[in-house]
Design a protein around this nucleic acid. Structure first.
Lengths: 142, 142
DNA sequence: TATTGTTATACTCTATAACTATA
DNA sequence: TATAGTTATAGAGTATAACAATA
């Protein structure tokens, strides 16, 4: 058991929580044939807006070179399209297909269910605190 | 930018924070020639107690088969020892060497510094809230 | 028979650098 | 010349199953 009060304990707890949620998510979405990276990309596209590779890379904290293969698979599975941006023909716009929209909605829903289950007994103020700390940690590496 | 209020947003924010802190940590510990997994194992051993492979696996949320190669490297680098447990000769006790103790302390210190920097402007109540939510998410997948 | 950990295999992520096409 | 993204390459994490040794 991690003692989060010790120096560094908060970060260890953060990593444990991420591992646990990724694992739980993969289980709940097993029927969709999606891995964690694919789920992450789809969830980021779930608002229906298109994104460039660079935008997706910073949203998912991956490199463009990593996204290449993830997007190749998502295109092959019919979940997203990758189309040349007419306004800047060096870059692409990545968008959900109708199928991808369903998978993205299912991903967000599974994440939402997981959150609801985990947060059932947690006070709203604590959730706000979680967001404040997670944001602060995220901003660090920018 | 992630909207953590939407369903699933909290989990996306959690993943971003983990990526960001791992990246920042790797940078601060670049001189130690340790990667994220190795740091995680050392930080878990930082209390000076020995652990079996199975205990380490659940503490770090990795599989024993993944730990094999991580521990091989840590042994080769002289940071840990892996000795047969006399009480149960199927299993090992993993312990820090003197060198490993220094690396583990440096890892926890770097994590502590990172936390201190990120949390400088965060209220204690918010930090408590973060811990409550992270614990709840971690417990989910157990 | 069940459990601990290693080994083998196949797939994926990660980082970096070289490269192409476009700006 | 600089930027967006792909390709190539090498090292590492992941899951699973088969395996040896021990319980």
């Amino acid at each position: 058991m991690i003692n989060a009060s010790e120096p560094g304990g908060l970060i260890l707890e953060l990593q444990s929580a991420t591992h646990a949620t990724l694992h739980a998510l993969a289980g709940r979405l097993a029927g969709l044939d999606l891995n964690a990276s694919e789920i992450n990309v789809l969830a980021n596209l779930a608002d229906g807006l298109s994104r460039s590779i660079g935008e997706l890379a910073s949203a998912t904290a991956t490199k463009p070179s990593t996204l290449t293969s993830i997007l190749d698979r998502l295109v092959r599975k019919g979940h997203v399209t990758r189309e040349l941006d007419p306004a800047d023909r060096r870059s692409f716009r990545v968008s959900l297909t109708a199928d991808g929209r369903r998978a993205a909605d299912a991903s967000r829903e599974a994440m939402g269910d997981l959150e609801a289950a985990a947060l059932a007994t947690i006070a709203a103020a604590d959730i706000a605190g979680f967001r404040a700390v997670a944001s602060a940690l995220t901003e660090l590496a920018r």
